[in-house]
Design a protein around this nucleic acid. Structure first.
Length: 207
DNA sequence: CCTGCGATATTCT
DNA sequence: GAATATCGCAGGC
């Protein structure tokens, strides 16, 4: 079951929060991969200097000005793809960058798509470039309609309570840095554990 | 665990 | 030329 159009026709910050716990799915070349979204960032239109749409429409960012529910995929640093969910009405230029997901289905396919194997399975799609790689997302999916396209979609997921979500400033930007428009779903168990000092030497890098 | 740095396409100055 | 919504590797602790 896919999320319908009305969901995407809201403020990018509301949708960024609401997408946590939802399930991203792709079917590329016959292979299905699915994962739970755990990290997002909101980017607004002309009033948000960190947004790709702030300085107007270009060939690269044109999908960002489509109606809510459209996929915006772009190449960053000449190497990595980033997957965004366009939000709001047509012409607004708002989107949500999907930064991380927990693998649920097609884990082996995700591994074959990633050059290097992460130590933990949970890290397969941690970070926007890794997520796009693991899910097989590239420029072919730019402009795809998430409510209709057979290759990429988002399903409703489990509700994540506010106490398990942290809002922080966005990553890797130089303008609008103070705005807390990044949302991260914490693992259920972690509180206090990071304050503890780990004894002994690190097992170190094998290999 | 943490930090620093190179790779490289698109856009803007 | 310079900057950019990043990642993986190298090296130190």
């Amino acid at each position: 079951m896919k999320i319908d159009r009305e969901f995407y026709r809201r403020d990018a910050r509301v949708i960024a929060r609401a997408l946590l716990g939802c399930v991203l799915g792709t079917r590329i070349d016959g292979g299905i991969t699915r994962g739970m979204i755990v990290e997002t960032e909101a980017y607004l239109g002309v009033d948000d200097p960190a947004s790709h749409s702030a300085r107007g429409r270009t060939a690269r960012n044109s999908a960002m000005f489509a109606r809510g529910g459209t996929a915006y995929v772009y190449l960053i640093y000449g190497i990595h793809y980033c997957f965004n969910v366009v939000t709001g009405d047509e012409g607004t230029g708002e989107a949500v960058l999907v930064r991380a997901a927990l693998p649920l289905q097609g884990v082996e396919l995700m591994r074959t798509r990633r050059r290097r194997q992460p130590r933990r399975e949970a890290d397969l799609a941690m970070g926007p470039g890794r997520l796009a790689s693991a899910f097989g997302i590239d420029l072919r999916l730019n402009h795809a309609d998430l409510t209709l396209d057979e290759r990429i979609w988002i399903e409703p997921g489990e509700h994540i309570d506010d106490e398990h979500i942290v809002a922080t400033p966005r990553i890797g930007i130089s303008k609008g840095v103070e705005l807390p428009w990044r949302w991260v779903a914490r693992p259920p168990v972690d509180s206090g554990a990071s304050a503890r000092v780990r004894p002994g030497g690190s097992p170190g890098r094998d290999r």
